[in-house]
Design a protein around this nucleic acid. Structure first.
Length: 321
DNA sequence: AATGCTATCAACCGCAGCTAA
DNA sequence: TTTAGCTGCGGTTGATAGCAT
């Protein structure tokens, strides 16, 4: 049994558990005899649980806990299995695609973590919940936005999502990518918000009625539409046939359509504040690097973004998704 | 090197819904 | 119909690693 007791006294033991961390458990004789264990699981407990489920299957957790010889509650066994031991659990950082999907699904279902997790194979509700609370909500707090508010949704849609798309594009292209990025919306060229890199990969979220936009790197006016009208808001400066990721993105969004509306005159050009390292990936934090001083920008209280942006009436159409 | 702070994530808790007795 | 037990979900906590000072 791979349980490493580093030290052991009559009442305190240090145990190297499965996560590689040291767990200190203070127990009494009474605890050991009568009470249920709590805290980090040991390798021995994991092994008992895994082998029992391999033989008998999962479910009926209270009985399982007793039968397996685990001094744990059924709930604890269930949680340990579902969140950590189950073979098909995917570990490691969430990919941009997964993050994008989480944002999409959360906008649709709210804190229905279990339901969201069903759409991310190998990811657990706990993991998604932790991601949301530690990354997404943190950004909202830092920007003085109430998470779940309309402004927060605007931020997610107009900044975070395009950058995730951009990251996906970049991941799909192994060629060297400059740190130069820009988000551009020029009044003269229609209402679009565009994430662009210097290697001409450009992703635009458009107001459907105005589909043209300027490729920031080439200066050419580009208008690319999807066959599916519901994808009109998604446009790419590269022809679709040359951008596999664009196709993937299009597929991903096919049933998750929403429009991103921002006001005219909205122009942001940051030259180096969120290069690749920034894209690894914290889009809202990169917002903090923008110069919003030219706008009616409030850093505390209710406001944080261009007023017209927040006043858009067609934002985040839940029904359309 | 020591200390404090922050981020992350595993695990626990309380509650609600379901089911069987 | 009531009640007790079980399960699953979402919120919260606590331990710890890593970073900053």
């Amino acid at each position: 049994m791979n349980m490493y007791h580093v030290t052991h006294t009559s009442s305190i033991s240090l145990i190297l558990n499965t996560t590689g961390t040291l767990a200190m458990s203070k127990t009494t004789k009474k605890d050991e005899e009568n009470e249920l264990r709590r805290g980090p699981w040991t390798l021995e407990e994991d092994s008992l649980l895994i082998h029992y489920i391999a033989r008998h299957g999962e479910g009926r957790w209270n009985m399982l806990a007793k039968s397996a010889g685990l001094k744990r509650t059924g709930k604890s066994c269930r949680l340990r299995w579902l969140n950590y031991l189950k073979p098909d659990i995917k570990r490691g950082n969430l990919t941009p695609q997964e993050q994008l999907l989480i944002l999409e699904l959360h906008s649709k279902w709210g804190n229905r973590w279990s339901k969201i997790a069903q759409h991310l194979p190998g990811r657990t509700d706990n993991e998604i919940k932790n991601y949301w609370r530690t990354r997404v909500q943190k950004q909202a707090r830092q920007l003085n936005i109430e998470s779940g508010s309309k402004r927060f949704i605007d931020a997610v849609k107009c900044f975070w999502m395009p950058r995730l798309l951009q990251k996906m594009e970049q991941n799909n292209n192994s060629s060297p990518i400059s740190d130069h990025s820009s988000i551009t919306n020029m009044n003269n060229f229609g209402n679009s918000i565009e994430a662009s890199t210097s290697n001409s990969i450009s992703t635009s979220f458009n107001v459907p009625s105005q589909r043209g936009f300027i490729d920031a790197s080439s200066g050419n006016h580009v208008s690319t539409s999807f066959n599916n009208p519901s994808l009109d808001f998604l446009q790419f400066s590269q022809p679709l046939e040359t951008s596999e990721t664009s196709k993937n993105v299009a597929n991903m969004f096919e049933n998750n359509v929403h429009n991103c509306q921002i006001q005219d005159n909205f122009y942001i050009d940051d030259t180096n504040s969120y290069g690749l390292e920034g894209l690894s990936f914290d889009p809202l934090s990169s917002m903090e690097n923008y110069d919003f001083s030219q706008f009616d920008f409030q850093t505390s209280g209710n406001g944080w973004m261009v007023d017209n942006m927040a006043n858009s009436s067609n934002l985040w159409n839940m029904d359309a998704m």
